[in-house]
Simulated assay, not measured.
Amino acid sequence: MSTYNRNKWVTIPNILSCIRLLLVPLFVLTYLKSTEPIHYYYAALLLLISGLTDLLDGWIARKYQQISEVGKLLDPLADKITQAAIIFCLLTRYEWMWSIILLFVAKELFMGICNLVLLRRGTKLDGAKWYGKLSTAVFYICMFFLIAFPTIATSQASLLISITAFFLSLSFILYGKIFIQMYQATKR
């Protein structure tokens, strides 16, 4: 019988991930109720705080050996919930966000299913790859500008959405390649 060990999951990185999860409804409410530019700045500030806690939790976890199984679940969960909230909020303002929704959902479903298949075969993808991290960084930067500057020109908004879509697609393709290689290796 396993015993409960609070120290294994109550770590600074895990607390930061929980804070990120708590920031999601606050961000959504702030963004959706925004009517003046200052309100959008508040929403962007919440997103910036969320991004900083994301950077900090990973750095602290690695530097102080506070990597935990709970953290391996919480961190990506907080990332995906935050990203989904951003996408759906921005869909209320920019109709081309549907392309990001399609890519995001397809990529996450694909990766989730592939991870389950690989787990059943006794292996798993261990951690995010550089292109996943780059895609996430580009996503947050582009979405930050769309949130902070609601009066941005349509052409500039379309460019930011296109850049995000390109990096999401690139990440999707490169992760797909890795999953296929890992799957084929487990067949041998």
Score class of each variant (00 low, 15 high):
residue 83 Q to V: 05
residue 15 I to V: 15
residue 184 Q to A: 14
residue 55 L to K: 11
residue 11 T to V: 08
residue 159 L to W: 08
residue 25 P to S: 05
residue 71 G to D: 11
residue 8 K to E: 14
residue 7 N to C: 01
residue 16 L to P: 01
residue 90 L to Y: 09
residue 119 L to K: 13
residue 13 P to A: 07
residue 176 G to M: 08
residue 28 V to Y: 04
residue 161 I to E: 04
residue 81 I to Y: 05
residue 142 C to F: 08
residue 161 I to T: 05
residue 179 F to M: 11
residue 173 I to P: 05
residue 1 M to D: 14
residue 99 S to A: 11
residue 116 L to I: 09
residue 42 Y to P: 00
residue 151 T to C: 05
residue 99 S to T: 12
residue 168 L to N: 09
residue 127 G to T: 04
residue 77 L to T: 12
residue 18 C to N: 12
residue 95 E to D: 13
residue 91 L to D: 01
residue 23 L to G: 04
residue 128 A to C: 01
residue 105 V to F: 06
residue 26 L to P: 01
residue 73 L to I: 15
residue 177 K to W: 14
residue 59 W to L: 10
residue 24 V to T: 07
residue 132 G to D: 06
residue 152 I to W: 03
residue 64 Y to P: 07
residue 5 N to A: 05
residue 157 A to S: 08
residue 22 L to S: 09
residue 106 A to M: 14
residue 155 S to N: 11
residue 56 L to M: 10
residue 31 Y to M: 00
residue 180 I to W: 15
residue 53 T to I: 12
residue 134 L to K: 00
residue 179 F to N: 12
residue 162 S to M: 11
residue 169 S to F: 14
residue 170 L to I: 09
residue 184 Q to T: 13
residue 81 I to H: 06
residue 109 L to W: 05
residue 79 D to S: 05
residue 40 Y to F: 11
residue 28 V to F: 05
residue 88 F to H: 04
residue 77 L to W: 04
residue 57 D to R: 03
residue 81 I to Q: 08
residue 116 L to E: 03
residue 24 V to S: 07
residue 84 A to I: 02
residue 100 I to W: 06
residue 15 I to L: 15
residue 24 V to N: 09
residue 1 M to P: 15
residue 54 D to K: 09
residue 146 L to Q: 00
residue 120 R to I: 05
residue 155 S to Y: 10
residue 32 L to C: 02
residue 97 M to D: 03
residue 45 L to M: 03
residue 148 A to N: 01
residue 149 F to V: 13
residue 175 Y to E: 05
residue 86 I to P: 07
residue 74 L to S: 12
residue 114 C to Y: 12
residue 59 W to V: 04
residue 15 I to S: 09
residue 11 T to R: 00
residue 79 D to F: 09
residue 23 L to W: 03
residue 60 I to C: 07
residue 29 L to G: 13
residue 184 Q to S: 13
residue 59 W to C: 03
residue 8 K to D: 13
residue 181 Q to W: 10
residue 111 M to A: 11
residue 177 K to N: 15
residue 154 T to C: 03
residue 173 I to L: 14
residue 86 I to H: 03
residue 120 R to T: 13
residue 116 L to Q: 11
residue 89 C to I: 07
residue 18 C to E: 07
residue 183 Y to E: 09
residue 188 R to L: 14
residue 56 L to D: 04
residue 134 L to D: 02
residue 31 Y to T: 00
residue 71 G to M: 11
residue 128 A to R: 01
residue 73 L to M: 14
residue 6 R to W: 05
residue 87 I to H: 06
residue 173 I to Y: 12
